[in-house]
């Protein structure tokens, strides 16, 4: 898909099939990549990729000035993946996948449209002058965000008309899913743990608090306001809940101290439950993935969403959290 001599583009998008093919065709064995002095730079960069993902949530771009830069960049990606796999942390896998996807987005939004189309094709997204088909759009768009809801989009004859950077944003999501899916099934060769021991130990200790589930301090459903009670019951029964309902439920449960995994469990009865997708949505709302923590909607908002079934106590509060706090204080 790329111009075969354009190593720069391969290096910029190392997760693509073609970049992987390139690495494979170099026929360098894993042992050499891990220990040969020639690849020292690639190893350093590999470690840096993971560190940057952990610390800042995005992998930095590096200048790709010559062939050597590109080659090192290309090799650094499989090294980084091996390190992530060796740390054996689900949190790191998610965080790293997102960080790589964000890096790709930064570069991608400045690429010419033809290139974006080609890359989109790698994820089964067809783009043409009409935009992208709404079914592809719905697969990758963060539709919990008003701006991305289909209803607020320019939909014509089955195609969503999007701006350049918006298509790039959808591809970012597709990339994130792909990288995360691949990492979930990747096992690092034992020597990786030995060679990068210090880094891996450091990474493990910094993700430990994220991966460990602190005990939920007594979440008592009895004290939930009626709107949340009915949403929780619906989630548990696997009935469909409107977007805004899921949003309300997740922000609420998060606010009272429930962990992602416990919130996930609640949704797992849903007929089309997709653990990774749901997790991502939850983490987006709770700010783990996005950095923005959404607030629990107020009562009047919940009312306009048609999710309000007030009881006596509701009449005296304006926010579902007040209801919960008041009941739990008693």
């Amino acid at each position: 898909m790329f111009n075969s001599v354009d190593l720069t583009q391969l290096a910029r998008y190392p997760f693509t099939t073609e970049a992987k093919e390139w690495v494979k065709n170099e026929k360098v064995n894993t042992a050499d990549i891990l220990s040969d002095a020639v690849y020292e730079r690639a190893r350093m960069r590999g470690i840096a990729r993971v560190h940057q993902a952990l610390k800042r949530g995005i992998v930095d771009e590096v200048p790709l000035l010559g062939e050597a830069d590109c080659i090192m960049e290309l090799f650094s990606y499989p090294i980084a993946r091996m390190i992530v796999a060796a740390v054996e942390s689900e949190y790191l896998i998610r965080r790293y996948a997102l960080a790589e996807a964000k890096k790709a987005y930064t570069a991608l939004k400045n690429e010419p449209p033809e290139f974006i189309s080609i890359l989109a094709g790698e994820f089964g997204i067809t783009t043409d002058h009409r935009g992208i088909h709404f079914t592809d759009y719905l697969k990758y768009a963060p539709t919990w965000d008003t701006k991305w809801k289909l209803v607020n989009r320019n939909l014509q004859h089955g195609y969503v008309v999007l701006q350049h950077h918006e298509i790039a944003r959808l591809i970012q999501e597709a990339i994130r899913e792909k990288i995360q899916r691949e990492l979930a099934n990747l096992f690092a060769p034992p020597e990786v743990k030995r060679i990068f021991r210090d880094d891996i130990v450091a990474m493990r200790s910094s993700v430990a608090s994220k991966d460990r589930r602190p005990k939920i301090e007594e979440v008592n459903e009895e004290y939930f306001p009626p709107c949340i009670k009915s949403l929780a019951a619906a989630a548990r029964a696997g009935t469909n809940i409107p977007h805004v309902g899921r949003f309300t439920l997740v922000t609420f449960l998060h606010a009272i101290g429930m962990e992602t995994d416990d919130i996930l469990k609640l949704f797992s009865a849903s007929p089309d439950f997709n653990m990774e997708k749901t997790r991502y949505q939850i983490e987006h709302i709770t700010g783990k993935a996005s950095g923005t923590t959404y607030a629990v909607p107020r009562c009047d908002t919940i009312l306009t969403w048609g999710l309000c079934y007030p009881d006596q106590l509701c009449k005296t509060v304006r926010h579902p959290l007040f209801y919960y706090r008041r009941r739990s204080r008693r």
């Binding site: 088909h133 719905l138 209803v151 939909l155 409107p242 977007h243 089309d272 997709n274």
Partner: peptide
């Protein structure tokens, strides 16, 4: 054939569209 594999969340978006639910005038 493109709709057969849609999950309920995606179907919900289609419904919301047709019902005008979540329509934000400031986006329009």
């Amino acid at each position: 054939k493109a709709v057969l594999s849609l999950g309920s969340q995606e179907r919900r978006e289609i419904i919301d569209y047709i019902m005008g639910r979540g329509l934000d005038l400031s986006e329009i």
